[in-house]
Design a protein around this nucleic acid. Sequence first.
DNA 1: CTTAGGG
DNA 2: CCCTAAG
Length: 625
Amino acid sequence: MVFQKRMESGSIGYKIPKKPRFPRSARGKPSPPKKVEVSQMRPFDLLATVAEELLLAKKKSCRLLYEAEETTSTINKIKKEQFDTGSSLKSDVFDQGSCDESSFVARFVSRGQVTFNFEEHLSSPEERTAASTLALVKCHVSEKNAFIGIHNLEDPVDLDAKSTALVSSDSGVEIPPIGGHHSAGGSSFSSVRGDIELLVNKDDDENSSGRTHGSNMYARAFKPHCTGDGRVRKLTKSKYWKPSREAMDYGELWNDDEEIKPVFRSRKLCYTRQRTKRSSFKRSKLFEGSTFSSSNGGFRSKAVSDPFVKDCMKLDYIGTHADLSNAHGRSGSTTGHTPSYEPVENHVKLSIKSFRVPELFIEIPANATIGSLKRTVMEAVTAILSGGLHVGVHLKGKKIKDDNKTILQAGISDTDKLDNLGFTLEPNLSRIQHHNSCISDPEPLTKIHSTLAPAIDIGTFNAVISASDCTESDHDSVHSPTNPSTIDKMANNSKALVPILALNPVALAAVPLSNSKASEIVQRRIRRPFSVPEVEALVLAVEKLGTGRWRDVKLRAFENAKHRTYVDLKDKWKTLVHTARISPQQRRGEPVPQELLDRVLSAHAYWSRQQAKSARLAERCHRPV
DNA sequence: CTTAGGG
DNA sequence: CCCTAAG
Protein backbone atom coordinates (compact mmCIF):
# COMPACT_ATOMS: atom_id res chain seq x y z
CA MET A 1 0.00 0.00 0.00
CA VAL A 2 1.15 3.41 -0.79
CA PHE A 3 0.58 4.84 2.65
CA GLN A 4 2.54 2.20 4.35
CA LYS A 5 5.56 2.55 2.19
CA ARG A 6 5.51 6.22 2.64
CA MET A 7 5.33 6.08 6.32
CA GLU A 8 7.95 3.49 6.75
CA SER A 9 10.35 5.56 4.88
CA GLY A 10 9.75 8.08 7.58
CA SER A 11 8.71 10.94 5.43
CA ILE A 12 7.29 13.84 7.32
CA GLY A 13 6.07 16.01 4.57
CA TYR A 14 3.43 13.49 3.88
CA LYS A 15 1.29 14.07 0.88
CA ILE A 16 -1.84 12.21 0.09
CA PRO A 17 -1.40 10.03 -2.91
CA LYS A 18 -3.67 11.09 -5.65
CA LYS A 19 -4.77 7.58 -6.15
CA PRO A 20 -7.99 6.30 -4.67
CA ARG A 21 -10.95 8.07 -6.09
CA PHE A 22 -14.35 7.38 -7.29
CA PRO A 23 -14.24 5.17 -10.27
CA ARG A 24 -14.16 7.13 -13.42
CA SER A 25 -17.06 5.16 -14.71
CA ALA A 26 -19.21 6.75 -12.10
CA ARG A 27 -18.89 10.09 -13.71
CA GLY A 28 -20.91 10.09 -16.85
CA LYS A 29 -23.70 7.82 -15.82
CA PRO A 30 -24.35 7.53 -12.15
CA SER A 31 -23.41 4.20 -10.72
CA PRO A 32 -26.10 2.15 -9.03
CA PRO A 33 -26.83 4.10 -5.92
CA LYS A 34 -26.09 2.53 -2.63
CA LYS A 35 -29.14 1.86 -0.58
CA VAL A 36 -29.07 3.77 2.62
CA GLU A 37 -32.18 4.35 4.51
CA VAL A 38 -32.46 7.87 5.70
CA SER A 39 -36.10 8.42 6.33
CA GLN A 40 -35.85 7.74 10.02
CA MET A 41 -32.74 9.66 10.60
CA ARG A 42 -32.24 12.77 12.48
CA PRO A 43 -30.21 15.58 11.05
CA PHE A 44 -26.87 14.54 12.22
CA ASP A 45 -27.40 10.92 11.39
CA LEU A 46 -27.98 11.90 7.90
CA LEU A 47 -24.91 13.95 7.82
CA ALA A 48 -22.93 11.16 9.29
CA THR A 49 -24.27 8.87 6.66
CA VAL A 50 -23.26 11.21 3.95
CA ALA A 51 -19.88 11.42 5.47
CA GLU A 52 -19.51 7.75 5.88
CA GLU A 53 -20.52 7.05 2.35
CA LEU A 54 -18.06 9.60 1.31
CA LEU A 55 -15.35 7.99 3.30
CA LEU A 56 -16.20 4.51 2.21
CA ALA A 57 -16.01 5.60 -1.33
CA LYS A 58 -12.72 7.24 -0.63
CA LYS A 59 -11.44 4.18 1.15
CA LYS A 60 -9.84 6.32 3.73
CA SER A 61 -10.39 7.12 7.27
CA CYS A 62 -10.40 10.72 8.01
CA ARG A 63 -10.41 13.40 10.56
CA LEU A 64 -13.46 15.52 10.88
CA LEU A 65 -13.32 19.14 11.73
CA TYR A 66 -16.51 20.92 12.08
CA GLU A 67 -17.27 24.49 12.43
CA ALA A 68 -20.65 25.62 13.35
CA GLU A 69 -22.17 28.97 13.03
CA GLU A 70 -25.53 29.59 14.43
CA THR A 71 -27.85 32.36 15.17
CA THR A 72 -27.95 31.29 18.75
CA SER A 73 -25.10 32.18 20.96
CA THR A 74 -24.60 28.77 22.47
CA ILE A 75 -23.12 27.36 19.38
CA ASN A 76 -20.05 29.46 19.69
CA LYS A 77 -18.87 27.27 22.45
CA ILE A 78 -18.47 24.33 20.18
CA LYS A 79 -16.98 26.15 17.34
CA LYS A 80 -14.10 24.37 15.82
CA GLU A 81 -14.23 21.18 17.67
CA GLN A 82 -12.47 18.40 16.04
CA PHE A 83 -12.82 14.72 16.01
CA ASP A 84 -10.65 11.95 14.96
CA THR A 85 -12.48 9.40 13.06
CA GLY A 86 -11.51 5.92 12.37
CA SER A 87 -14.00 3.89 10.53
CA SER A 88 -16.44 5.10 13.08
CA LEU A 89 -17.26 8.59 12.22
CA LYS A 90 -20.55 8.67 13.88
CA SER A 91 -19.78 7.24 17.22
CA ASP A 92 -16.74 9.37 17.48
CA VAL A 93 -18.67 12.49 17.03
CA PHE A 94 -21.60 11.55 19.11
CA ASP A 95 -19.82 10.50 22.17
CA GLN A 96 -17.18 13.08 22.16
CA GLY A 97 -17.15 14.22 25.71
CA SER A 98 -19.50 17.06 26.27
CA CYS A 99 -20.77 16.86 22.76
CA ASP A 100 -22.90 13.81 22.95
CA GLU A 101 -25.50 12.66 20.59
CA SER A 102 -28.39 14.56 21.97
CA SER A 103 -26.62 17.80 22.50
CA PHE A 104 -25.08 17.72 19.12
CA VAL A 105 -28.33 17.00 17.45
CA ALA A 106 -29.93 19.72 19.42
CA ARG A 107 -27.37 22.15 18.25
CA PHE A 108 -27.56 20.90 14.80
CA VAL A 109 -31.28 21.14 14.63
CA SER A 110 -31.29 24.71 15.61
CA ARG A 111 -30.84 27.10 12.80
CA GLY A 112 -27.48 27.79 11.49
CA GLN A 113 -24.72 26.44 9.44
CA VAL A 114 -22.34 23.71 10.20
CA THR A 115 -19.35 23.05 8.10
CA PHE A 116 -17.74 19.69 8.27
CA ASN A 117 -14.31 19.38 6.96
CA PHE A 118 -13.12 15.89 6.37
CA GLU A 119 -9.44 15.45 6.35
CA GLU A 120 -7.50 12.36 5.83
CA HIS A 121 -6.84 10.69 9.08
CA LEU A 122 -3.27 11.04 10.11
CA SER A 123 -1.89 10.42 13.48
CA SER A 124 0.97 12.72 14.10
CA PRO A 125 0.81 16.49 14.21
CA GLU A 126 3.41 16.90 11.54
CA GLU A 127 1.42 14.79 9.21
CA ARG A 128 -1.75 16.56 10.01
CA THR A 129 -0.39 19.82 8.88
CA ALA A 130 0.10 18.19 5.57
CA ALA A 131 -3.30 16.57 5.52
CA SER A 132 -5.56 17.48 2.72
CA THR A 133 -9.20 17.98 2.81
CA LEU A 134 -11.14 15.12 1.40
CA ALA A 135 -14.42 16.86 1.40
CA LEU A 136 -16.29 19.73 2.76
CA VAL A 137 -19.83 19.20 3.89
CA LYS A 138 -21.86 22.25 4.55
CA CYS A 139 -25.13 22.00 6.31
CA HIS A 140 -27.65 24.73 6.45
CA VAL A 141 -30.12 24.00 9.11
CA SER A 142 -33.44 25.63 9.54
CA GLU A 143 -36.29 24.72 11.79
CA LYS A 144 -37.32 21.75 9.79
CA ASN A 145 -34.80 21.41 7.10
CA ALA A 146 -31.22 20.58 6.66
CA PHE A 147 -29.48 21.38 3.48
CA ILE A 148 -26.37 19.47 3.01
CA GLY A 149 -23.89 20.29 0.40
CA ILE A 150 -20.84 18.26 -0.25
CA HIS A 151 -17.95 20.05 -1.73
CA ASN A 152 -15.04 18.04 -2.75
CA LEU A 153 -12.01 20.20 -2.76
CA GLU A 154 -9.84 17.64 -4.35
CA ASP A 155 -11.93 16.80 -7.30
CA PRO A 156 -15.13 18.73 -7.76
CA VAL A 157 -16.10 16.66 -10.74
CA ASP A 158 -16.74 13.76 -8.46
CA LEU A 159 -19.74 15.41 -6.94
CA ASP A 160 -22.06 13.44 -9.08
CA ALA A 161 -20.84 10.13 -7.97
CA LYS A 162 -21.06 11.04 -4.37
CA SER A 163 -24.51 12.35 -4.39
CA THR A 164 -25.85 9.06 -5.54
CA ALA A 165 -24.71 7.50 -2.38
CA LEU A 166 -27.75 8.64 -0.50
CA VAL A 167 -30.99 7.01 -1.25
CA SER A 168 -34.15 6.86 0.65
CA SER A 169 -35.06 3.28 0.27
CA ASP A 170 -38.16 3.84 2.27
CA SER A 171 -39.83 5.84 -0.38
CA GLY A 172 -37.95 4.35 -3.19
CA VAL A 173 -37.09 7.78 -4.36
CA GLU A 174 -33.52 8.13 -5.30
CA ILE A 175 -31.68 11.26 -4.80
CA PRO A 176 -30.67 12.54 -8.16
CA PRO A 177 -27.11 13.53 -8.56
CA ILE A 178 -26.22 16.86 -7.21
CA GLY A 179 -26.53 19.50 -9.78
CA GLY A 180 -28.50 17.24 -12.01
CA HIS A 181 -31.26 18.52 -14.24
CA HIS A 182 -34.32 17.98 -12.24
CA SER A 183 -36.83 20.21 -10.71
CA ALA A 184 -38.17 18.01 -7.94
CA GLY A 185 -41.20 20.12 -7.61
CA GLY A 186 -39.18 23.25 -7.80
CA SER A 187 -38.77 23.29 -4.09
CA SER A 188 -36.87 26.05 -2.53
CA PHE A 189 -36.30 27.42 0.88
CA SER A 190 -39.42 29.45 0.78
CA SER A 191 -41.63 26.52 -0.03
CA VAL A 192 -40.54 24.37 2.78
CA ARG A 193 -43.93 23.70 4.19
CA GLY A 194 -45.21 22.35 0.98
CA ASP A 195 -42.37 19.93 0.79
CA ILE A 196 -43.06 18.64 4.18
CA GLU A 197 -46.66 17.97 3.52
CA LEU A 198 -45.96 16.33 0.29
CA LEU A 199 -43.45 14.04 1.84
CA VAL A 200 -45.50 13.24 4.83
CA ASN A 201 -48.25 12.08 2.60
CA LYS A 202 -45.94 9.61 1.06
CA ASP A 203 -44.57 8.59 4.37
CA ASP A 204 -45.33 5.32 6.00
CA ASP A 205 -43.90 6.18 9.31
CA GLU A 206 -46.41 4.12 11.20
CA ASN A 207 -44.82 1.04 9.84
CA SER A 208 -41.38 2.08 10.61
CA SER A 209 -41.78 4.00 13.81
CA GLY A 210 -39.49 2.75 16.47
CA ARG A 211 -37.01 1.48 14.04
CA THR A 212 -33.62 2.83 14.54
CA HIS A 213 -31.99 2.58 11.23
CA GLY A 214 -29.15 4.80 11.98
CA SER A 215 -28.40 3.02 15.13
CA ASN A 216 -28.49 -0.38 13.60
CA MET A 217 -26.42 0.60 10.73
CA TYR A 218 -23.69 1.95 12.85
CA ALA A 219 -23.88 -0.76 15.37
CA ARG A 220 -22.93 -3.06 12.58
CA ALA A 221 -20.29 -0.87 11.19
CA PHE A 222 -18.60 -0.24 14.46
CA LYS A 223 -18.93 -3.47 16.23
CA PRO A 224 -15.61 -4.25 17.78
CA HIS A 225 -14.05 -7.45 16.76
CA CYS A 226 -12.47 -8.41 20.00
CA THR A 227 -9.68 -10.47 18.63
CA GLY A 228 -7.59 -10.71 21.69
CA ASP A 229 -6.16 -7.97 23.77
CA GLY A 230 -2.52 -8.50 23.23
CA ARG A 231 -1.76 -5.15 21.81
CA VAL A 232 -4.13 -3.23 23.88
CA ARG A 233 -2.79 -4.87 26.93
CA LYS A 234 0.36 -2.92 26.55
CA LEU A 235 -1.59 0.09 27.48
CA THR A 236 -1.93 -1.20 30.94
CA LYS A 237 0.57 0.50 33.04
CA SER A 238 0.55 -0.22 36.68
CA LYS A 239 -2.54 -1.94 37.85
CA TYR A 240 -3.63 1.21 39.52
CA TRP A 241 -4.01 2.98 36.28
CA LYS A 242 -5.27 0.27 34.13
CA PRO A 243 -8.07 1.03 31.75
CA SER A 244 -11.48 -0.31 32.29
CA ARG A 245 -12.38 -3.77 31.25
CA GLU A 246 -14.42 -2.26 28.50
CA ALA A 247 -11.42 -0.65 27.09
CA MET A 248 -9.47 -3.83 27.27
CA ASP A 249 -12.09 -5.73 25.45
CA TYR A 250 -12.10 -3.30 22.71
CA GLY A 251 -9.74 -5.31 20.65
CA GLU A 252 -9.19 -4.48 17.06
CA LEU A 253 -11.75 -1.94 16.28
CA TRP A 254 -9.68 -0.38 13.63
CA ASN A 255 -8.59 -3.50 12.01
CA ASP A 256 -11.09 -3.08 9.29
CA ASP A 257 -9.08 -0.43 7.68
CA GLU A 258 -5.76 -1.49 8.98
CA GLU A 259 -4.46 -2.18 5.57
CA ILE A 260 -5.05 1.30 4.43
CA LYS A 261 -3.74 2.87 7.54
CA PRO A 262 -0.20 4.01 7.79
CA VAL A 263 1.96 1.72 9.81
CA PHE A 264 4.23 3.65 12.01
CA ARG A 265 7.65 2.66 12.88
CA SER A 266 8.08 4.92 15.78
CA ARG A 267 7.00 3.36 18.97
CA LYS A 268 5.72 6.63 20.23
CA LEU A 269 3.44 7.00 17.32
CA CYS A 270 2.18 3.52 17.68
CA TYR A 271 1.46 4.09 21.26
CA THR A 272 -0.38 7.24 20.58
CA ARG A 273 -2.49 5.50 18.09
CA GLN A 274 -3.34 2.70 20.38
CA ARG A 275 -4.52 5.08 22.93
CA THR A 276 -6.69 6.69 20.38
CA LYS A 277 -8.09 3.34 19.55
CA ARG A 278 -8.94 2.71 23.08
CA SER A 279 -10.87 5.86 23.46
CA SER A 280 -12.48 5.37 20.15
CA PHE A 281 -13.86 2.13 21.28
CA LYS A 282 -15.24 3.53 24.40
CA ARG A 283 -17.05 6.13 22.50
CA SER A 284 -18.35 3.51 20.21
CA LYS A 285 -19.45 1.47 23.15
CA LEU A 286 -21.26 4.38 24.59
CA PHE A 287 -23.06 4.86 21.42
CA GLU A 288 -24.21 1.32 21.20
CA GLY A 289 -25.59 1.56 24.63
CA SER A 290 -27.37 4.76 24.07
CA THR A 291 -30.99 4.87 23.33
CA PHE A 292 -31.49 6.10 19.90
CA SER A 293 -34.79 7.75 19.59
CA SER A 294 -36.19 8.20 16.20
CA SER A 295 -39.65 8.99 17.34
CA ASN A 296 -39.35 12.66 16.92
CA GLY A 297 -39.20 12.83 13.25
CA GLY A 298 -37.71 11.48 10.16
CA PHE A 299 -35.90 12.59 7.11
CA ARG A 300 -36.46 12.55 3.49
CA SER A 301 -33.95 13.41 0.95
CA LYS A 302 -34.76 14.96 -2.27
CA ALA A 303 -33.10 17.00 -4.84
CA VAL A 304 -33.40 20.69 -4.90
CA SER A 305 -32.87 23.09 -7.68
CA ASP A 306 -32.78 26.16 -5.60
CA PRO A 307 -30.43 28.72 -7.00
CA PHE A 308 -29.01 29.38 -3.59
CA VAL A 309 -28.22 25.82 -2.81
CA LYS A 310 -27.37 24.45 -6.14
CA ASP A 311 -25.01 21.58 -5.79
CA CYS A 312 -26.59 20.79 -2.53
CA MET A 313 -28.79 18.01 -1.43
CA LYS A 314 -31.87 19.06 0.29
CA LEU A 315 -33.00 17.12 3.27
CA ASP A 316 -36.39 17.77 4.63
CA TYR A 317 -37.03 17.14 8.21
CA ILE A 318 -40.39 15.54 8.39
CA GLY A 319 -42.34 15.58 11.55
CA THR A 320 -44.51 12.65 12.36
CA HIS A 321 -48.21 12.88 11.98
CA ALA A 322 -48.48 13.70 15.61
CA ASP A 323 -46.14 16.56 15.10
CA LEU A 324 -48.25 17.99 12.41
CA SER A 325 -51.42 17.73 14.37
CA ASN A 326 -49.69 19.40 17.23
CA ALA A 327 -48.69 22.18 15.03
CA HIS A 328 -52.21 22.71 13.95
CA GLY A 329 -53.88 22.42 17.29
CA ARG A 330 -51.38 24.21 19.39
CA SER A 331 -53.72 24.99 22.22
CA GLY A 332 -54.89 21.44 22.55
CA SER A 333 -53.58 19.20 25.23
CA THR A 334 -50.91 17.30 23.42
CA THR A 335 -49.22 14.68 25.43
CA GLY A 336 -47.26 12.87 22.81
CA HIS A 337 -43.61 12.13 23.22
CA THR A 338 -42.86 13.82 20.02
CA PRO A 339 -41.89 17.41 20.31
CA SER A 340 -44.12 19.67 18.38
CA TYR A 341 -42.59 22.03 15.94
CA GLU A 342 -44.39 25.25 15.92
CA PRO A 343 -44.15 28.37 13.93
CA VAL A 344 -41.08 30.34 14.70
CA GLU A 345 -43.01 33.05 16.50
CA ASN A 346 -43.91 30.62 19.20
CA HIS A 347 -40.47 29.38 19.89
CA VAL A 348 -38.94 29.95 23.25
CA LYS A 349 -35.30 30.64 23.13
CA LEU A 350 -33.12 29.90 26.05
CA SER A 351 -29.48 30.44 26.15
CA ILE A 352 -27.54 28.99 28.99
CA LYS A 353 -24.63 31.25 29.55
CA SER A 354 -22.70 29.29 32.04
CA PHE A 355 -22.87 26.57 34.57
CA ARG A 356 -21.53 27.25 37.93
CA VAL A 357 -19.77 24.60 39.92
CA PRO A 358 -20.69 25.39 43.47
CA GLU A 359 -18.10 23.25 45.10
CA LEU A 360 -15.36 21.06 43.85
CA PHE A 361 -13.44 19.51 46.63
CA ILE A 362 -10.25 17.84 45.72
CA GLU A 363 -7.86 16.04 47.93
CA ILE A 364 -4.41 15.50 46.65
CA PRO A 365 -1.03 14.79 48.18
CA ALA A 366 0.87 17.87 49.16
CA ASN A 367 3.86 16.75 47.20
CA ALA A 368 1.89 16.34 44.05
CA THR A 369 2.85 18.67 41.30
CA ILE A 370 0.74 21.54 40.10
CA GLY A 371 0.52 19.78 36.82
CA SER A 372 -0.97 16.72 38.41
CA LEU A 373 -3.34 18.91 40.35
CA LYS A 374 -4.51 20.45 37.14
CA ARG A 375 -4.96 17.09 35.62
CA THR A 376 -6.82 15.84 38.61
CA VAL A 377 -9.23 18.72 38.49
CA MET A 378 -9.58 18.33 34.79
CA GLU A 379 -10.28 14.68 35.05
CA ALA A 380 -12.69 15.16 37.86
CA VAL A 381 -14.64 17.72 35.94
CA THR A 382 -14.52 15.70 32.80
CA ALA A 383 -15.64 12.68 34.70
CA ILE A 384 -18.65 14.52 35.91
CA LEU A 385 -19.47 16.08 32.62
CA SER A 386 -19.02 13.01 30.54
CA GLY A 387 -20.62 10.78 33.07
CA GLY A 388 -24.24 10.23 33.49
CA LEU A 389 -25.17 13.81 33.69
CA HIS A 390 -28.76 14.72 33.37
CA VAL A 391 -30.56 17.94 33.25
CA GLY A 392 -33.21 19.08 35.62
CA VAL A 393 -35.63 21.81 34.78
CA HIS A 394 -36.96 23.97 37.52
CA LEU A 395 -39.72 26.45 37.36
CA LYS A 396 -40.35 28.68 40.32
CA GLY A 397 -38.14 26.46 42.37
CA LYS A 398 -40.18 23.43 41.52
CA LYS A 399 -38.69 20.66 39.56
CA ILE A 400 -40.54 19.69 36.44
CA LYS A 401 -40.47 15.97 36.43
CA ASP A 402 -42.79 15.11 33.62
CA ASP A 403 -40.63 14.88 30.55
CA ASN A 404 -43.64 14.54 28.35
CA LYS A 405 -45.04 17.91 29.13
CA THR A 406 -44.62 20.43 26.43
CA ILE A 407 -42.88 23.67 26.97
CA LEU A 408 -46.18 25.32 26.61
CA GLN A 409 -47.88 23.14 29.15
CA ALA A 410 -45.15 23.65 31.65
CA GLY A 411 -45.64 27.33 31.30
CA ILE A 412 -42.12 28.00 30.27
CA SER A 413 -43.15 29.68 27.08
CA ASP A 414 -44.75 32.38 29.08
CA THR A 415 -42.28 35.20 28.99
CA ASP A 416 -43.12 36.42 32.44
CA LYS A 417 -42.16 33.15 33.98
CA LEU A 418 -38.81 32.86 32.36
CA ASP A 419 -37.33 34.61 35.30
CA ASN A 420 -38.19 31.63 37.38
CA LEU A 421 -36.69 29.10 35.08
CA GLY A 422 -33.56 27.26 35.95
CA PHE A 423 -31.58 24.30 34.83
CA THR A 424 -29.48 22.05 36.92
CA LEU A 425 -26.93 19.55 35.88
CA GLU A 426 -27.14 16.57 38.11
CA PRO A 427 -24.39 14.03 38.18
CA ASN A 428 -25.36 10.44 37.94
CA LEU A 429 -24.70 8.85 41.25
CA SER A 430 -24.42 5.25 40.27
CA ARG A 431 -21.99 5.86 37.53
CA ILE A 432 -19.53 7.92 39.40
CA GLN A 433 -19.66 5.73 42.42
CA HIS A 434 -18.98 2.77 40.28
CA HIS A 435 -15.82 4.30 39.06
CA ASN A 436 -14.83 5.33 42.48
CA SER A 437 -14.49 1.76 43.51
CA CYS A 438 -11.66 1.35 41.07
CA ILE A 439 -9.10 3.35 42.90
CA SER A 440 -8.38 3.58 46.52
CA ASP A 441 -5.04 4.01 48.05
CA PRO A 442 -4.71 3.40 51.71
CA GLU A 443 -1.16 3.75 52.85
CA PRO A 444 -0.51 2.25 56.22
CA LEU A 445 3.19 1.99 55.69
CA THR A 446 3.96 5.51 54.77
CA LYS A 447 1.85 8.00 56.53
CA ILE A 448 3.61 10.82 54.83
CA HIS A 449 1.38 11.01 51.86
CA SER A 450 -2.25 11.70 52.01
CA THR A 451 -4.66 9.72 49.98
CA LEU A 452 -4.04 9.70 46.31
CA ALA A 453 -7.55 9.19 45.20
CA PRO A 454 -9.03 12.60 44.66
CA ALA A 455 -12.37 13.03 46.23
CA ILE A 456 -14.76 15.46 44.74
CA ASP A 457 -17.84 16.80 46.29
CA ILE A 458 -20.38 17.70 43.78
CA GLY A 459 -23.48 19.58 44.39
CA THR A 460 -25.86 19.96 41.59
CA PHE A 461 -24.77 22.53 39.13
CA ASN A 462 -26.68 25.68 38.91
CA ALA A 463 -27.28 27.08 35.57
CA VAL A 464 -27.30 30.76 35.00
CA ILE A 465 -29.39 31.13 32.01
CA SER A 466 -30.77 33.86 29.98
CA ALA A 467 -33.84 33.70 27.91
CA SER A 468 -35.30 35.77 25.21
CA ASP A 469 -38.58 35.59 23.53
CA CYS A 470 -37.57 35.80 19.99
CA THR A 471 -40.47 36.93 17.94
CA GLU A 472 -38.87 37.99 14.76
CA SER A 473 -39.34 35.82 11.78
CA ASP A 474 -36.32 33.77 11.17
CA HIS A 475 -37.05 32.46 7.77
CA ASP A 476 -34.27 34.51 6.39
CA SER A 477 -31.81 32.96 8.66
CA VAL A 478 -31.85 29.93 6.50
CA HIS A 479 -30.27 31.92 3.79
CA SER A 480 -27.99 33.86 6.01
CA PRO A 481 -27.46 31.78 9.07
CA THR A 482 -24.84 34.02 10.45
CA ASN A 483 -26.76 37.18 10.32
CA PRO A 484 -25.05 39.35 12.90
CA SER A 485 -28.08 41.48 13.49
CA THR A 486 -29.96 38.48 14.69
CA ILE A 487 -27.32 37.67 17.18
CA ASP A 488 -27.21 41.19 18.42
CA LYS A 489 -30.90 41.29 18.84
CA MET A 490 -30.82 38.20 20.91
CA ALA A 491 -28.07 39.50 23.06
CA ASN A 492 -29.98 42.66 23.77
CA ASN A 493 -33.16 40.88 24.57
CA SER A 494 -31.57 38.47 26.90
CA LYS A 495 -31.83 38.94 30.57
CA ALA A 496 -30.22 37.02 33.30
CA LEU A 497 -32.33 34.57 35.16
CA VAL A 498 -32.16 33.90 38.81
CA PRO A 499 -30.45 30.61 39.34
CA ILE A 500 -32.48 28.10 41.20
CA LEU A 501 -31.04 26.70 44.35
CA ALA A 502 -29.62 23.29 43.96
CA LEU A 503 -31.71 20.56 45.39
CA ASN A 504 -30.21 17.85 47.50
CA PRO A 505 -26.55 18.53 47.04
CA VAL A 506 -24.84 15.21 47.04
CA ALA A 507 -21.35 14.49 48.13
CA LEU A 508 -19.66 12.26 45.65
CA ALA A 509 -16.27 10.86 45.21
CA ALA A 510 -14.96 10.88 41.72
CA VAL A 511 -11.82 9.48 40.31
CA PRO A 512 -10.11 9.89 37.02
CA LEU A 513 -12.34 8.23 34.54
CA SER A 514 -11.13 6.16 31.73
CA ASN A 515 -13.93 7.02 29.44
CA SER A 516 -13.22 10.64 29.11
CA LYS A 517 -11.29 12.63 26.68
CA ALA A 518 -8.93 13.67 29.40
CA SER A 519 -7.97 10.13 30.13
CA GLU A 520 -6.45 9.85 26.73
CA ILE A 521 -3.61 11.87 28.04
CA VAL A 522 -2.10 9.12 30.07
CA GLN A 523 -0.80 10.60 33.18
CA ARG A 524 2.61 9.88 34.51
CA ARG A 525 2.44 8.77 38.09
CA ILE A 526 3.42 11.41 40.50
CA ARG A 527 6.91 11.13 41.83
CA ARG A 528 7.02 9.91 45.37
CA PRO A 529 10.50 9.80 46.78
CA PHE A 530 11.31 6.96 49.08
CA SER A 531 11.47 7.91 52.70
CA VAL A 532 14.20 6.63 54.94
CA PRO A 533 11.88 4.15 56.66
CA GLU A 534 10.91 2.87 53.27
CA VAL A 535 14.53 2.48 52.29
CA GLU A 536 15.18 0.67 55.49
CA ALA A 537 12.32 -1.70 54.87
CA LEU A 538 13.57 -2.28 51.39
CA VAL A 539 17.10 -3.00 52.49
CA LEU A 540 15.90 -5.38 55.13
CA ALA A 541 13.78 -7.29 52.68
CA VAL A 542 16.49 -7.50 50.08
CA GLU A 543 19.01 -8.66 52.62
CA LYS A 544 16.66 -11.49 53.37
CA LEU A 545 15.33 -12.33 49.95
CA GLY A 546 17.94 -11.23 47.51
CA THR A 547 17.82 -9.05 44.46
CA GLY A 548 15.88 -11.25 42.16
CA ARG A 549 12.63 -11.67 43.94
CA TRP A 550 11.04 -8.28 43.76
CA ARG A 551 7.55 -9.59 43.97
CA ASP A 552 8.38 -11.23 47.26
CA VAL A 553 10.09 -8.09 48.45
CA LYS A 554 7.01 -6.17 47.63
CA LEU A 555 4.81 -8.64 49.44
CA ARG A 556 7.08 -8.74 52.42
CA ALA A 557 7.80 -5.10 52.98
CA PHE A 558 5.43 -3.05 50.87
CA GLU A 559 2.30 -5.11 50.94
CA ASN A 560 0.20 -2.16 51.97
CA ALA A 561 1.90 0.50 49.95
CA LYS A 562 -0.26 0.29 46.91
CA HIS A 563 1.69 2.90 45.06
CA ARG A 564 4.93 0.95 45.26
CA THR A 565 5.07 -1.70 42.64
CA TYR A 566 7.72 -4.35 42.57
CA VAL A 567 9.16 -2.58 39.61
CA ASP A 568 9.41 0.53 41.73
CA LEU A 569 11.24 -1.40 44.40
CA LYS A 570 13.61 -2.85 41.90
CA ASP A 571 14.25 0.59 40.50
CA LYS A 572 14.78 1.98 43.94
CA TRP A 573 17.32 -0.69 44.72
CA LYS A 574 19.08 0.16 41.53
CA THR A 575 19.32 3.80 42.48
CA LEU A 576 20.29 2.89 46.02
CA VAL A 577 23.21 0.90 44.77
CA HIS A 578 24.18 3.75 42.57
CA THR A 579 23.80 6.23 45.39
CA ALA A 580 25.92 4.14 47.66
CA ARG A 581 28.70 4.11 45.12
CA ILE A 582 28.86 7.80 44.45
CA SER A 583 30.29 10.38 46.76
CA PRO A 584 27.97 11.93 49.33
CA GLN A 585 28.37 15.29 47.62
CA GLN A 586 26.79 13.99 44.48
CA ARG A 587 23.78 12.60 46.21
CA ARG A 588 20.49 14.39 46.02
CA GLY A 589 17.21 14.32 47.82
CA GLU A 590 16.63 13.26 51.34
CA PRO A 591 19.92 11.91 52.60
CA VAL A 592 19.99 8.22 53.27
CA PRO A 593 21.97 7.21 56.34
CA GLN A 594 25.36 5.89 55.42
CA GLU A 595 24.67 2.85 57.50
CA LEU A 596 21.87 1.89 55.19
CA LEU A 597 23.92 2.53 52.12
CA ASP A 598 26.63 0.30 53.44
CA ARG A 599 24.12 -2.45 53.94
CA VAL A 600 22.92 -1.86 50.41
CA LEU A 601 26.40 -2.38 49.06
CA SER A 602 27.10 -5.48 51.06
CA ALA A 603 23.74 -7.00 50.32
CA HIS A 604 24.15 -6.21 46.68
CA ALA A 605 27.59 -7.78 46.64
CA TYR A 606 26.40 -10.83 48.48
CA TRP A 607 23.42 -11.50 46.27
CA SER A 608 25.39 -10.81 43.16
CA ARG A 609 27.78 -13.51 44.19
CA GLN A 610 24.92 -15.84 44.97
CA GLN A 611 23.42 -15.17 41.62
CA ALA A 612 26.66 -15.86 39.87
CA LYS A 613 27.11 -18.99 41.89
CA SER A 614 23.72 -20.39 41.00
CA ALA A 615 24.30 -19.43 37.42
CA ARG A 616 27.48 -21.47 37.32
CA LEU A 617 25.61 -24.33 38.93
CA ALA A 618 22.92 -24.22 36.30
CA GLU A 619 25.53 -24.09 33.61
CA ARG A 620 27.19 -27.21 34.91
CA CYS A 621 23.93 -29.07 35.09
CA HIS A 622 23.02 -28.36 31.54
CA ARG A 623 26.45 -28.87 30.05
CA PRO A 624 28.34 -31.22 32.32
CA VAL A 625 31.81 -31.80 31.05
C1' DC B 1 2.45 -11.52 35.55
C1' DT B 2 7.54 -11.10 36.74
C1' DT B 3 12.21 -10.06 35.94
C1' DA B 4 15.83 -7.48 34.20
C1' DG B 5 17.58 -3.53 32.07
C1' DG B 6 17.80 0.46 29.27
C1' DG B 7 15.79 5.20 28.91
C1' DC C 1 9.28 6.67 36.75
C1' DC C 2 8.51 4.71 32.08
C1' DC C 3 8.72 1.14 28.58
C1' DT C 4 9.76 -3.42 27.00
C1' DA C 5 11.76 -7.75 25.88
C1' DA C 6 11.75 -12.26 27.69
C1' DG C 7 10.46 -15.96 30.26
